[in-house]
């Protein structure tokens, strides 16, 4: 963002494709997939891992999105989880699986590591299906239709709208500073001071911008009531897809509890 590049196209990259998932009404899709995600995040029994992976891969395949796109979504959370999970086989559990000299490897630790890794993979993948098969704006409008408070939806959309401009403005400021000899990668008290001034200036300009945008909104009647455009239409296919997803989710939770 601070480099001024427009990253917003990324999530919308595959939004215009055709697939049974793309055609699923956004609101119902979110309900169904969130239900599945919640179920996945509740599963504690590691024996269900293959099932979770299977369901996830089937849904991703149904979406028609390319598999290489998934890689980008998995990298960063993957690293964070790996850093946390790497210790578990050595510290968590009672049943000893193996010993390497003084180091003990616990069975439960390994199972837990695998479970966490699988849960991460499945949740991130399903989330990508949920958000990647619609434009960002449609997703937020669907959330609003699902009772996300208007004020939150409006804020999210406005932030999204101006994120690029504000990022570009900061990139320009930094370039101007660099052209006058500022070396932002060197640590010094003076440099932190300069960066504080740059960021302070960014905040002031953003605040002033908000006042202008507010005037523009009020001038065209913001807050005077009025109706919003109805853009979502659902049919039988949507209800069926969501019902299947939710049934799957509930079954998973029950099976996990009972077995």
């Amino acid at each position: 963002m601070a480099d001024g590049h427009n990253h917003q196209a990324d999530i919308d990259a595959y939004a215009q494709m055709q697939s049974p998932i793309h055609q699923w009404d956004t609101r119902w899709k979110i309900v169904g997939l969130l239900g599945l995600i919640a179920a996945f995040a509740m599963v504690q029994d590691w024996r269900f891992m293959p099932l979770l992976i299977l369901i996830t891969c089937l849904i991703y395949a149904a979406s028609g999105m390319p598999w290489h796109a998934l890689r980008h979504r998995l990298i960063i959370p993957g690293y964070v989880v790996a850093a946390i999970v790497i210790f578990l086989p050595f510290i968590s559990g009672q049943t000893v699986l193996a010993t390497l000299g003084p180091i003990i490897i616990f069975q439960e630790g390994i199972a837990l590591s695998l479970l966490i890794a699988v849960r991460l993979f499945c949740i991130v993948t399903l989330a990508f299906v949920m958000f990647g098969t619609d434009t960002f704006v449609r997703t937020i409008l669907a959330l609003r239709a699902l009772r996300l408070p208007d004020i939150m939806a409006d804020m999210v959309l406005l932030t999204y709208r101006y994120l690029y401009e504000i990022g570009a403005f900061f990139a320009q400021m930094r370039l101007a500073a660099r052209l006058r000899g500022f070396q932002g990668s060197v640590f010094s008290r003076q440099n932190i001071n300069i960066l504080a001034s740059l960021v302070g200036h960014l905040f002031i300009r953003s605040y002033e911008k908000s006042e202008r945008v507010y005037k523009a909104m009020v001038l065209r009647g913001y807050g005077s009531g009025g109706v919003r455009r109805e853009i979502f239409h659902s049919g039988a296919a949507d209800y069926v897809k969501t019902a299947v997803a939710l049934l799957l989710a509930i079954s998973l939770i029950l099976m996990d509890q009972l077995l």
């Binding site: 101006y162 953003s206 911008k209």
Partner: peptide, 13 residues
């Protein structure tokens, strides 16, 4: 709404 949005964008950057 616009105040929160602009400042959120600025802090995000």
């Amino acid at each position: 709404v616009p105040k929160a949005a602009m400042m959120t964008a600025a802090f995000f950057v």
